[in-house]
């Protein structure tokens, strides 16, 4: 029985982390049709900024430890905003006429550049900022201890998911965005400022990526290469759910998270295959992903 609880809770925690990582990717793809290979780098930048600032806060500044959570989120917002604006305004906006494939390669080049930039800025020594993680203590659920920080992350993730959904489905901006997603040309013809929408979306996407990194930073050791590791995970979640769909990313994250948790508890040997196995199976049954739209065939 405890195993059953554990599978569920572990699955939820992992799924919420996956969703955090994948949300920015799917938002950017949904609106801009850019499969952003550099998404992992935004995650890494967020993690590094948060880890270094929180580390500094605890070592050189004797403030209220609970303020470090604000610092964590603040870092992510600033980092995401700065990186997003610089990349969108400095590079991407000149490239929007290029095809989808070339955009992948452009973001791949960005990934290479950002990886080394992060390394130059933060060094290769891992950052270990455990304080926000250790501060919240643990809860006993069914005889098994869980870190409260991880449980809180489930709630944060749910809020972000709900927020994205509400913006997209219940606001004016969301309506306009959906128009852009549905048919870019008609949206332009209707007087939608697509450039502005693109810039805004990209910045939101990078900020979500940075936020995922910042929220993960206290529970891991922030070291070079963490960005590259999450790219494929995020891709898989987004592809399973259907590219560009927020609901899809939620369901994709839950599916992958739960399956992985099941595997770890019941058959640890197959853990390595879970993510690609789920992806292959879902694509074999539904080629466009669970929530993906089939595109009209244009002659």
């Amino acid at each position: 029985m405890t195993t059953f609880y554990a599978i569920f809770i572990d699955g939820m925690i992992y799924a919420s982390w996956l969703f955090l990582v994948a949300a920015g990717l799917t938002v950017i793809y949904g609106v801009m049709r850019i499969l952003n290979m550099a998404h992992g780098s935004f995650y890494a930048i967020g993690a590094y900024c948060a880890a270094s600032m929180v580390g500094w806060y605890f070592s050189d500044f004797d403030g209220n430890p609970y303020l470090s959570y604000l610092l964590l989120i603040g870092c992510a917002l600033v980092a995401g905003l700065v990186v997003g604006v610089v990349i969108e305004q400095g590079l991407l906006r000149f490239m929007y006429k290029r095809n989808e494939l070339l955009m992948i390669i452009i973001t791949y080049a960005l990934l290479l550049i950002l990886e080394d930039t992060t390394k130059l800025a933060f060094g290769v020594d891992p950052y270990f900022t455990y304080q926000p993680y250790a501060l919240l203590g643990r809860s006993d659920i069914g005889g098994l201890a869980f870190a409260n920080y991880d449980l809180l992350l489930v709630a944060v993730s749910a809020i972000i998911g709900l927020g994205c959904w509400l913006v997209l489905n219940r606001t004016h901006v969301g309506k306009v965005l959906r128009a852009v997603i549905h048919d870019r040309e008609i949206a332009v013809a209707m007087g939608v400022n697509v450039r502005l929408m693109f810039a805004g979306t990209f910045i939101v996407g990078t900020t979500l990526g940075a936020l995922a990194g910042a929220l993960t930073a206290p529970s891991i050791s922030v070291s070079p290469g963490i960005g590259v590791e999450v790219i494929v995970l995020a891709f898989a979640v987004v592809v399973v759910g259907g590219l560009g769909s927020i609901e899809g990313a939620i369901v994709g994250a839950l599916l992958v998270g739960m399956t992985r948790s099941l595997a770890v508890h019941l058959a640890p040997q197959i853990e390595l295959f879970v993510i690609y196995g789920v992806m292959s199976l879902v694509l074999a049954v539904r080629p466009q992903g669970l929530f993906g739209r089939t595109l009209a065939r244009k002659i």
């Binding site: 989808e100 494929v232 891709f235 898989a236 592809v239 295959f273 690609y276 694509l283």
Partner: peptide, 25 residues
């Protein structure tokens, strides 16, 4: 051959990673 675009790319990626997993094991 049933897949196009990004789905072809991602499925091909998944298949090669499954071989990677098998070899690692």
């Amino acid at each position: 051959t049933r897949y196009r675009d990004i789905f072809f790319a991602m499925l091909s990626l998944a298949l090669s990673m499954i071989l990677f997993g098998v070899l690692v094991k």
